[in-house]
Design a protein around this nucleic acid. Sequence first.
RNA 1: UGGGGUGUAGCCAAGUGGUAAGGCAACGGACUUUGACUCCGUCAUUCGUUGGUUCGAGUCCAUCCACCCCAGCCA
Length: 549
Amino acid sequence: MVEETNNNFIFDIIKEDLSKNGILEGKKIHTRFPPEPNGHLHIGHAKAIYINFMAAKIFSGVCNLRMDDTNPGKEDESFAQGIKRDVKWLGFDWENRFYRASDYFPQMYKFACDLINKDLCYVCELTPEEVKQNRGDLSNPAISPYRDREKQESIELFKRMKNGEFETGKMTLRAKIDLASGNFNMRDPVIYRIINDGNKTNNWYIFPMYDFAHPIEDALENITHSLCSLEFEDHRPLYNWVIENIDTSSKPRQIEFARLSLSFTIMSKRKLSKLVEEKVVSGWDDPRMPTISGLKKRGYTPLSIRSFCEKIGVSKVNSTVDYMFLEHCLREDLNINAKRVMAVLNPIKLIITNYPENTEEEFEIENNPNRPEDGVRKIIFSREIYVESDDFMIKPIKKYFRLFPGNEVRLKSTYIVKCTGYKITDNKICEIYAEYDRKSRGGKSPDGRKVKSTIHWVNVKNSINAVVKLYENLFLSKNPESNEKGFLKDLNPNSLKILNNCKVENCLSNAEKGETFQFMRLGYFTADSVDKDKLIFNRSVTLKDSYKI
RNA sequence: UGGGGUGUAGCCAAGUGGUAAGGCAACGGACUUUGACUCCGUCAUUCGUUGGUUCGAGUCCAUCCACCCCAGCCA
């Protein structure tokens, strides 16, 4: 998994801008990732982060991290902290360029006053309802009776708005552009509103709207390419209007790309919050959540997420990526890097009847066949072991070549054993019996006979207990939002399954929190708790399995 | 109905007038002490439609069709 970058239409534009006679010839590019601190980052944001930081990296520029905090009340410092943590975890570095839109409020206020003086803005006293009624429609223009207010009067009122003399919603500052525009964003958009609820941020009572604030933030930070998602395409004329009419030499350029949709999950912050509030999940970092913190807890690695972002590409097509593709990227990383261990999720005891009691043998097992340099470790074998209950059938179905009476399997790294019988108590198989072939030590078959199946096991004596959490998609449909009764009616009842009686190899007593292992033949599992008396693993992703029962 | 976008395989996605990359998924097969991994092979006579220009069109022009976004004092 080499980290290199494919081309895309945005990088083509940047290349063009940077080329000879391009608008940025001889300059550096400068991008930014500007989340609103009103929720936690998810995999969709990872795409935006990746695009912005990679554009900077590839073209030897830099990328800022900026909190777009222009709407107090929705926002919270804890979200800002979480965002910084997640971006850093993903492996991106904004160095010392962390900014907040609110730090620019004085400058924005000044720009707004300039615009009033240029007769490009006016204070409007329409209430929100009146604005709505007067917005016009597809064939009729909007109306504002305050459009021709004297500049001086607007300046006065705007100052009084700033001083907190009016209550929330009483008046707004509007840009004088075109009440008849086919683009509703240009029908004299509100650029400042009053939020005077006693809950003030930095002593401000007026707050700039996104459309006014964003271009100014970009200009003040000397952003060259302002990369955002498709729904802002209609806002670009307004973005450019602001840049052209304020006093700046910066010429940031907005380019839009399609945001990410992933099958079987949702990306809307509002809906993700709902899952948290309704306690459908344990929190923003529930391993089933598509949030960065959730993916981390699930066992996703920063490399796998970056690789995913790289591989899905960048375009303007609204598309939905298969969830399987994300899983593929994780497996690709873990296949190379995860240590292999043995763990039995649904244990059943296997007794090797011809193996001496009170004896044990030591065997070596490789830590990672894909990385011989990771060496081997010792495992202890003895008469009683646990095997997976799925690996035994009294009457084998077609193409089943694991344990069943009369059949031979290899116990990974040790011996070939032949199943000789089983015991049933209370209608349940409680023990399986087998005999081992002592000539097969190490799992070899000296006579060359083929043993189709090799199964994993742990020793009864020294295996340790663990809890394993198995996850499936949170939703049943590819597109949970399409459920007519709402996404909350599309929940998968099996999205979490907790196994409390798992037996794992004793080397896992040294596992570190967050460390990921391959449980052989089962999948990749990440240590979520490593407390002495409570070892918990989250299944990150299964192994691919061509055997369908 | 006004404005802005987008249509290439089941899913992403290259392609910039010279004869449809790549990945995922799927399906065959080889290998295998993980039914994993790895390796090999198959998988678009055709690019939303219909016309046109051209020696030549996924690429240019026109037409129609489908889908997405926009009428917050959200971002």
